[in-house]
């Protein structure tokens, strides 16, 4: 149990690190959100589950925390994505298609 907990904690902190590295390296706000949301969500989940395994006193509370993170983290990043898209933050030059932008243009005309 303790070994599994330690491994989960190590994997979790590794994913947290990779997520923030992705935030630093990606070219525009949407790709940063991609890296930031997914990697940090799994990182936090795995780390907190590992803590529950390491000390059984914390297990119930860590499960509540995991459920809360899974429910709220996608919502907050979706809200940021929507806000930046509505404010007209451009996609990176590498992008190949933007359906939503065409829609907005049609509505304005």
């Amino acid at each position: 149990m303790a070994i599994a907990g330690n491994i989960l904690i190590l994997i979790g902190s590794l994913f947290l690190f990779l997520g923030s590295l992705g935030i630093f390296r990606m070219p525009d706000v949407y790709n940063r959100l991609q890296a930031g949301t997914k990697a940090t969500t799994l990182g936090a989940m795995s780390l907190i589950l590992g803590i529950g395994f390491l000390n059984n006193e914390f297990l119930v509370k860590s499960i509540v925390l995991i459920i809360f993170i899974v429910l709220t983290n996608p919502v907050s990043s979706s809200t940021i994505a929507r806000a930046s898209h509505k404010s007209g933050v451009p996609l990176t030059d590498k992008s190949i298609i933007d359906v939503c932008r065409d829609d907005i243009r049609k509505e304005e005309v």
Binding site: F15, K38, L42, I96, V99
Partner: peptide, 20 residues
């Protein structure tokens, strides 16, 4: 998803092909 994102992030060429 996480393995996919992690591989993209650590790759020096940053292989992305994004769009909406």
């Amino acid at each position: 998803a996480n393995i996919d994102v992690a591989l993209r992030v650590v790759n020096p060429a940053l292989p992305i092909n994004p769009g909406i």
